[in-house]
């Protein structure tokens, strides 16, 4: 199953890498297991990047499709999850860039998604900021936290989601986002500082 080229890879103990190696050999059932294992995790991250469930699923599908197309050229160079989210990050960046172009063409849009804070969230944040002592219910807090996340830059948001949802280390985030671990440390520091400032009235 594993050829001599990859024998020395430190990532061979990763069970998902093993599944991917089986998929490389033509085992479609192994690839189906990978889809099952990662579909929810991928959609959850992409949903917060893009802001729409349907678009997040389309993008997640595209991620799996790309991996499947290139499965015969797969080389073990990283954890499978790092590789998968790296592809997802690149596709999400392209999606946001195209979305920004669309936005330039038509300035009016009702859904903010990754393009900015949703108006109702902004309103809630402003309203609640005037009443810091007010106790928010769970839904309101959830909306507020989403607004706080949306206030971050795209890169900060991705780093936060990978760290929070995927429990990725700084090194893995760096691999996923094509950054240095030092840059990730700085990115996450600024992101958490921004979150603290945004949410401070409710802490």
């Amino acid at each position: 199953m594993v050829d001599s080229e990859t024998d020395l890879s430190p990532y061979l103990h990763d069970p998902d890498v093993q599944l991917m190696l089986r998929a490389r050999q033509g085992d479609d059932a192994a690839f189906a297991v990978l889809v099952e294992n990662y579909q929810d995790r991928l959609v959850a991250v992409l949903y917060h990047i893009i802001g729409k469930q349907e678009a997040a699923e389309d993008l997640a599908q595209e991620v799996f499709l790309r991996i499947y197309r290139h499965r015969k050229k797969y080389e073990v160079k990283a954890k499978f999850s790092t590789w998968l989210f790296r592809i997802a990050n690149n596709l999400a960046s392209n999606y946001r860039r195209d979305g920004a172009r669309r936005n330039e063409a038509s300035l009016a849009t009702n859904e903010s998604g990754s393009m900015g804070v949703r108006p109702e969230e902004n309103f809630l944040a402003e309203k609640s900021a005037l009443m810091p002592a007010r106790v928010l219910d769970r839904t309101e807090t959830q909306t507020l936290v989403r607004a706080a996340l949306d206030s971050l830059s795209d890169r900060q948001k991705m780093a936060v989601l990978l760290h929070k949802f995927e429990q990725m280390s700084y090194v893995d985030i760096a691999t996923t986002m094509d950054l240095t671990p030092q840059a990730v440390k700085s990115l996450l520091s600024r992101a958490r500082e921004n979150l603290r400032v945004y949410l401070e009235p409710f802490l």
């Binding site: 579909q39 929810d40 959609v43 959850a44 949903y47 917060h48 469930q53 997040a56 769970r138 807090t141 959830q142 936290v145 989403r146 706080a148 996340l149 936060v160 929070k164 949802f165 958490r192 979150l195 603290r196 945004y198 949410l199 401070e200 409710f202 802490l203």
Partner: peptide, 12 residues
């Protein structure tokens, strides 16, 4: 602030 992110929905 970090713990509040646990409230974010995680759609499947």
């Amino acid at each position: 602030a970090w713990e509040l992110l646990d409230l974010l929905p995680r759609p499947s």
